[in-house]
Amino acid sequence: MCTVIPISLTVGANRIVPTVAIPYPLGNPELTAEKEKALRRQLVIAGLQALETPVDGQKVFEQ
């Protein structure tokens, strides 16, 4: 789960879920606490779904 997708692709990650920003990949300080946690939940669920998905090489799971 990362923000700079080209780095994850370069280093060879196979399941890649794009995140929000470098200093807060799984959050957004501009949102209310409640909305921020909902966003984080959505990203973590996307991560778990990526882990449940068969891949035959590198795959970026665009939201």
């Binding site: 470098i22 200093p23 807060y24 959050g27 300080p29 984080r40 973590v44 669920i45 778990l48």
Partner: peptide, 28 residues
Amino acid sequence: YDPTYANNDPDRVVPLDVLRDLEREGKI
């Protein structure tokens, strides 16, 4: 990177809070 956001809420980098919710809900 600017540590302000991670220091204010480390779950923004390691999302333990929502993973615990998912654990309680039986999703994992």
